[in-house]
């Protein structure tokens, strides 16, 4: 199995900050899955997800990461949840 992640890893805080810049009310929980600073899972809760499909919600997070997805941070598993008031 080829290695899916061979590019500079991103710090967890950097991921959280980038997400919160675009999604200000986001609650972000990040787990480093493999302890290698490059396989993360992120659970994001925000009211801005309300009424959006999962694809749209995940795209909001990818956009927040400004195109780093796929390139620098290949292995970020996402879970999004609508924040209810």
């Amino acid at each position: 199995m080829i290695n899916c992640n061979s590019i500079m890893p991103m710090e967890q805080k950097e991921i959280e900050n980038l997400i919160k810049i675009s999604i200000p009310d986001a609650e972000v929980t990040i787990t480093d899955l493999a302890g290698d600073n490059n396989h993360f899972s992120a659970h994001i809760t925000s009211s801005l997800f309300d009424g959006k499909t999962r694809i749209q919600q995940h795209k909001m997070v990818y956009d927040a990461l400004e195109g780093r997805m796929g390139g620098i941070l290949h292995a970020l598993s996402l879970k999004t949840t609508v924040k209810k008031d």
């Binding site: 999962r54 694809i55 995940h58 795209k59 990818y62 195109g67 997805m69 796929g70 390139g71 290949h74 598993s77 996402l78 879970k79």
Partner: peptide, 28 residues
């Protein structure tokens, strides 16, 4: 394919021509 679907990663699943999602969404 990433431009086609405006989705930055692989894999990508399509059902009857419609983009369904990547690994996270399909797993969920």
């Amino acid at each position: 394919i990433k431009v086609f679907s405006d989705w930055p990663t692989i894999p990508q699943l399509y059902v009857k021509g419609e983009f369904i999602g990547g690994c996270d969404i399909v797993k969920e």
